[in-house]
Amino acid sequence: MINMVALMGRLTYEPELRSTPNGLAVIRFQIACDRTYQKDSQNRQADFIDCVAWRQTAEFISRYFHKGSMIAVEGTIQTSNYTDKDGNKRKQIEVLANNVSFCGSKAENGTQGTQGAQNEQYTQGGMDINPDTSDFEEIVDDDDDLPF
């Protein structure tokens, strides 16, 4: 049986780190994921997906992610049944986040200013390349010594 989930979206509220009576770190959060299909006459719609993370993953989310941050979540779906305070039977469906990753630019995640993100440099083959220029043509060096 397979139970795998991969999601990417934005946090809908500020996640709050909590701990169980046994001292385990836990965090509940919700991400908004845009739907891929939309009718011509409608605005883009999103699904709001509840997630939970435990231990180091929970601490990582608490430290580096905030409301509006893009996040990639890999995990599994888990369901639970409970009775609410009014005596109604309820079913809860949420994603148990096993791995989370940063998405989007560094500026969106608050780790670097927008000016720094725009001037980010890449290195390939020992040569500094600015992705905003046409320096990419200089990477390929036509060498007649190749055997093919």
Results as ranks from 00 to 15, higher is better:
Met1Thr: 09
Met1Phe: 10
Asn3Ala: 12
Val5His: 03
Val5Ile: 15
Val5Asn: 01
Val5Pro: 09
Arg10Asp: 06
Arg10Thr: 07
Leu11Pro: 10
Tyr13Gln: 14
Glu14Phe: 05
Pro15Met: 08
Glu16Gly: 02
Leu17Met: 09
Ser19Cys: 06
Ser19His: 14
Thr20His: 07
Asn22Cys: 04
Gly23Cys: 13
Gly23Glu: 12
Ala25Val: 02
Ile27Gln: 10
Gln30His: 08
Ile31Arg: 01
Ile31Lys: 05
Thr36Gly: 07
Tyr37Gln: 12
Gln38Cys: 00
Gln38His: 12
Gln38Pro: 00
Lys39Asp: 14
Asp40Met: 04
Ser41Val: 01
Ser41Trp: 09
Gln42Phe: 01
Asn43Phe: 01
Gln45Ser: 14
Ala46Glu: 02
Phe48Asn: 05
Ile49Leu: 11
Asp50Ile: 01
Asp50Phe: 06
Cys51Gln: 07
Cys51Trp: 01
Trp54Ile: 00
Arg55Asp: 14
Gln56Glu: 15
Glu59Thr: 10
Ile61Asn: 05
Ile61Leu: 03
Ser62Trp: 07
Ser62Met: 02
Arg63Asn: 10
Tyr64Glu: 07
Phe65Ile: 09
Phe65Thr: 03
Phe65Gln: 04
His66Lys: 15
His66Leu: 02
His66Arg: 15
Lys67Leu: 05
Lys67Cys: 09
Gly68Ile: 10
Gly68Thr: 11
Ser69Pro: 05
Ser69Thr: 09
Ile71Gly: 04
Ile71Cys: 04
Val73Gln: 06
Val73Ala: 07
Thr76Gln: 15
Ile77Arg: 06
Gln78Met: 02
Thr79Asp: 07
Ser80Phe: 04
Asn81Cys: 06
Thr83Asn: 04
Thr83Asp: 02
Asp84Glu: 05
Lys85Cys: 02
Gly87Lys: 11
Gly87Pro: 11
Gly87Ser: 10
Arg90Ala: 02
Arg90Asn: 09
Arg90Leu: 09
Lys91Ser: 15
Gln92Ser: 15
Ile93Val: 15
Glu94Cys: 06
Leu96Asn: 09
Ala97Leu: 06
Ala97Pro: 12
Asn99Ser: 03
Ser101Lys: 11
Ser101Arg: 13
Phe102Thr: 07
Phe102Arg: 04
Ser105Leu: 08
Ala107Asn: 11
Ala107Phe: 02
Glu108Met: 13
Asn109Pro: 03
Asn109Val: 08
Gly110Asn: 08
Gly110Tyr: 12
Thr111His: 11
Thr111Ala: 10
Gln112Thr: 10
Gly116Gln: 13
Gly116Met: 07
Gly116Glu: 12
Ala117Asp: 14
Asn119Glu: 12
Asn119Ile: 06
Gln121Trp: 01
Tyr122Met: 15
Tyr122Ala: 13
Tyr122Asp: 03
Gly126Tyr: 03
Gly126Val: 12
Asp128Ala: 13
Asp128Lys: 14
Asp128Trp: 00
Asp132Ser: 14
Thr133Cys: 07
Glu137Gly: 07
Asp141Ala: 11
Asp142Val: 13
Asp142His: 04
Asp143Arg: 09
Asp143Ser: 12
Asp144Arg: 09
Pro147Ala: 12
Phe148Asn: 10
